[in-house]
Write a protein that binds this DNA or RNA. Structure first.
Lengths: 210, 210
DNA sequence: AATTGGATTAGTCAAACGTATAACACGACA
DNA sequence: TGTCGTGTTATACGTTTGACTAATCCAATT
């Protein structure tokens, strides 16, 4: 009934327009008519293809997370040393900010706070993200000789994910203070770990948190 | 003209109702009429007292941040050892979640993403928070003998603030995984620092990150 | 050439919206 | 007692909203 096959470009045009408007005005200011105008289509088609605005946002989320997870997987699957992957991930932090990509993610998040269905979908994608990171961190921590008794992989992954989310949140609020210092600190710490890994015999002086 | 003196309880009733609705339905679903009903007042009074919904949200933000900063200041001003202050702060993380306090903060944040005026006000409050934390962290790090060359105070404060924001964000999205492990890791690390502080002569084996 | 069916259009509809205003209540003050 | 001003109410106005429908278009098929 609703949601016919998307063999033509109209559905894609709606999804693209929705992403653009999420960046520009936020989910609360998107109406069917405004969306249709942005997409260059008739506003009746929103109901025709998606049934409702809520279902449209679900489609936006699905397409968005598909692209994101694909990118994440590809990055951490490479053969480069961990520090290179890390730097790549941190460069995404800048790219995604300028492209407005993070605004989309947070707007969908804010929308989900008041919509159980979207919330569950977002939580599922989050768990995928955690799993991907855990797979990358566990061997890296072993390689660096970190004491996983004192510093469990789960805790380290959670730390990294949460402070990344915090940075994204702050930047969207127009706050940049301290981010550079923090990322520089982590980077130089990784460098020291990388160096210790090469020249290590059996000393563990780089294992403890400050 | 607008915003007469608030000597009666109606203005407060509106602000309370707004906070309740921010928790329950989010900013996008709050209308003047629904707000007035929640406050038990006539919906014409919203315009009478605040001029517009936007100005009402500004008032909500002001009252909210005033209470928050006051609490923060009082906590970090105490004489207890740093680890006690830390535990108190982390207990707020739970209390504020259950009271819905964090939902209010994030809803205002999301609203501010698309409203420059609110955005600037929130950024100002954020800087106050950073300043308060920096004043508490700097002496603590010196006391623990942490190498502020490798681990600058600014970077550590930013790390703590951002991962806290990340935790709040995740929890609002229904995600709890890893938070307990992370907080436990930090707590035991602080305990080891506290112990090292007492029994220290001049060895610095607890200074480095893992 | 005729037919068919999905894609698209224009327009309708009731409900809800923010805003505004005239009228009312009532204690303070003259 | 009469007047004044603030707090409050009831109501109205014009607009916009999401949802829906009937009519039209058009390319592919028969």
């Amino acid at each position: 009934m609703t949601r016919p096959l998307a063999q033509n470009g109209t559905v894609t045009a709606f999804l693209d327009a929705a992403e653009r408007l999420l960046i520009e005005v936020g989910y609360a200011n998107i109406t069917t008519r405004r969306l249709a105008e942005e997409a260059g289509a008739n506003h009746g088609l929103v109901h025709y293809y998606f049934g409702s605005m809520e279902q449209l946002f679900v489609s936006v989320l699905e397409r968005y997370t598909d692209r994101l997870i694909t990118r994440q997987r590809a990055m951490y699957a490479g053969d480069e040393p961990f520090i290179e992957k890390w730097r790549k991930a941190m460069s995404f932090l800048d790219e995604d900010r300028q492209s407005g990509y993070q605004k989309i993610w947070l707007e969908l998040q804010a929308l989900a706070w008041n919509q159980p269905e979207l919330r569950e979908r977002l939580a599922r994608e989050h768990r995928k993200w955690i799993a991907t990171l855990t797979e990358a961190f566990a061997p890296a921590m072993a390689e660096y000789g970190l004491d996983t008794q004192r510093f469990p992989v789960e805790a380290m992954v959670t730390l990294v994910v949460t402070f990344n989310e915090g940075i994204i949140l702050e930047r969207l609020g127009g706050i940049d203070d301290g981010h550079t210092a923090l990322l520089a600190m982590i980077d130089s710490w990784l460098v020291s770990l990388e160096a210790a890994k090469c020249g290590r015999k059996d000393d563990h002086d780089a294992r403890a948190l400050p």
